[in-house]
Amino acid sequence: MEEYSNKVMDHFMNPRNVGIIEDANGIGEVGNPVCGDIMKMYIKVKENVIVDVKFQTFGCGAAVATSSITTELVKGKTLEEALKLTNEKVAEALDGLPPIKMHCSNLASQALKAAIEDYLKNGKEK
């Protein structure tokens, strides 16, 4: 196993924003149990701004850490700003990830995008 940065370990050991938002108006779920990582992202959007975001993750250290930092990076951001988040930026914010973990790191930004799409499609009126 390749080594994780201190930042990854910090987000893994003390993940921010874990849990469920009961009255979320956007939910995104990506990954599948076969490949070993599943992420679920809950967002609460008010006037185009992500006012709250929470996640649940089934996965490795990288999966948990990327979920956690993603929530930190997008909280308080507009949807347009949030949609600009890429997995490279997520990895960068964690001071890098081992190359074999890039697969896991893709999922966090994808889960966020899925949650925003869900909001745009179904959640606006909530």
Partner: peptide
Amino acid sequence: EYIEGESILLLLDSLGICASSGSACT
């Protein structure tokens, strides 16, 4: 069930316990 092996290993390691897992991520 419902959790992934590498995460277990990392938390065990934080307590000084060495073990292994057959998960994909390891």
